[in-house]
Amino acid sequence: VTTYKLVINGKTLKGETTTKAVDAETSEKAFKQYANDNGVDGVWTYDDATKTFTVTEMV
């Protein structure tokens, strides 16, 4: 189990959250659901070296 981080650069929501998951794909699903639940829709990137997802909304 690995800890993954999500950085949110939204128009109205900014911040970070973490989750523990067995792999990046599992954490990505959880993070995308979290973003969707909070009305964040944007461009996703992933940095495997830091286990960090970033979602950026276009303004």
Rank of each mutant, 00 (worst) to 15 (best):
A21Q: 07
E16T: 14
V22A: 12
M58A: 11
G15W: 15
Y46A: 00
I8W: 08
G15N: 08
N9F: 12
D23C: 05
N36V: 13
A30Y: 15
G10T: 15
T45L: 06
Q33F: 05
D23L: 04
K51D: 02
W44N: 00
T54Y: 12
G39K: 07
G42C: 02
T19R: 07
A49C: 09
N36I: 15
K14L: 08
L13D: 05
Y34M: 05
T50W: 03
T50Y: 04
A35M: 09
D47H: 05
V43D: 08
A30E: 12
M58S: 11
E28I: 10
K32T: 04
I8Y: 06
T26H: 10
T52K: 03
V59N: 12
L6H: 02
V7H: 05
E57K: 03
Q33P: 00
G15L: 15
L6R: 00
T19P: 02
V59Q: 12
Y46N: 00
K51N: 07
A21F: 06
K29A: 11
T52R: 02
N9L: 14
V43A: 08
T26C: 06
T2K: 11
K11I: 15
V43L: 10
W44V: 01
T26E: 13
G15S: 13
K51L: 08
D48H: 09
D48F: 07
Y4H: 03
D47F: 03
T52P: 00
F31Q: 01
T45D: 09
K14S: 10
V55W: 01
K5E: 03
T2F: 14
G10M: 14
S27E: 01
T18E: 10
T45Y: 09
W44R: 00
V43N: 07
N36S: 14
N38G: 04
Y4I: 05
E16N: 07
E28P: 00
T52N: 01
E16D: 06
D23Q: 03
V59R: 10
I8E: 02
I8K: 00
K51C: 04
T56D: 09
K20I: 14
A21I: 03
K20F: 13
Q33I: 09
A49L: 12
A21S: 09
L13T: 09
L13P: 04
D37P: 01
V55L: 10
M58L: 13
T17C: 15
T50K: 06
G42T: 02
A30Q: 13
G10S: 12
G10A: 09
G15H: 13
K51G: 04
T54K: 04
S27Q: 04
E25L: 12
A49P: 06
T2Q: 13
Y46E: 00
Y34T: 02
T56S: 08
T45A: 08
L6C: 06
T52H: 02
E25D: 09
T54N: 04
S27I: 08
E28F: 15
A49V: 11
T17Y: 15
W44Q: 00
T2I: 14
T54D: 02
K51T: 03
K5M: 07
K5A: 04
V43P: 02
W44K: 00
Y4L: 02
K29T: 07
G15P: 04
D47M: 03
D48S: 10
T12E: 09
L6F: 06
K5G: 02
K20C: 14
E25Y: 11
K20Y: 12
N9T: 06
N38A: 12
K32I: 08
A35I: 08
K14T: 10
V22L: 12
Y34L: 07
V59S: 13
V55Q: 00
V22K: 13
K20V: 13
V55M: 04
Q33G: 05
V40L: 09
T56R: 04
T12M: 10
T19M: 15
V1A: 11
K5R: 13
T12F: 14
D41G: 07
V7E: 04
T3H: 07
T56F: 07
V43Q: 09
E28M: 14
K5S: 06
W44T: 00
K14H: 10
Y4G: 04
F53C: 00
A30L: 15
A30T: 14
A35H: 02
D37A: 12
E28Q: 11
V1W: 14
F53N: 01
Y4D: 04
T56I: 07
K11Y: 10
K20T: 14
F53G: 00
T19A: 09
F53P: 00
E57C: 06
K14D: 05
V43M: 09
V55P: 00
A24Y: 15
D23T: 05
E57H: 05
Y34N: 01
T19H: 13
T3L: 13
K11C: 15
V59W: 13
T45W: 07
Y46T: 00
A24G: 04
A30D: 06
T3C: 13
W44E: 00
T18V: 08
D48E: 13
E16P: 04
V59I: 12
T56Q: 06
L6S: 02
G15A: 13
K5T: 13
G42N: 00
V1Y: 14
Y46V: 00
V55G: 01
E16S: 12
T50F: 04
F31A: 01
A35G: 02
E25H: 10
A30V: 15
A21L: 03
T17F: 15
T3E: 14
T56N: 08
V59P: 12
L13V: 13
G15V: 14
N36A: 15
D23V: 02
A24I: 12
T45I: 06
W44H: 00
Y46W: 03
L13W: 14
V59A: 13
F53K: 00
A35L: 11
N36H: 15
K29L: 10
D23F: 03
F31C: 01
T17N: 05
V40P: 01
Y4E: 04
T12I: 12
D47G: 00
G15D: 09
V40I: 15
T45F: 09
D47W: 02
K5P: 04
Y46M: 00
A24E: 07
E25M: 13
I8F: 06
K11P: 09
V59M: 12
D37H: 07
F31K: 00
L13M: 12
T19I: 15
G42M: 02
T2G: 08
T50S: 09
V40Y: 06
V1F: 14
K29Q: 10
T52A: 03
Q33W: 05
T17G: 04
V1D: 11
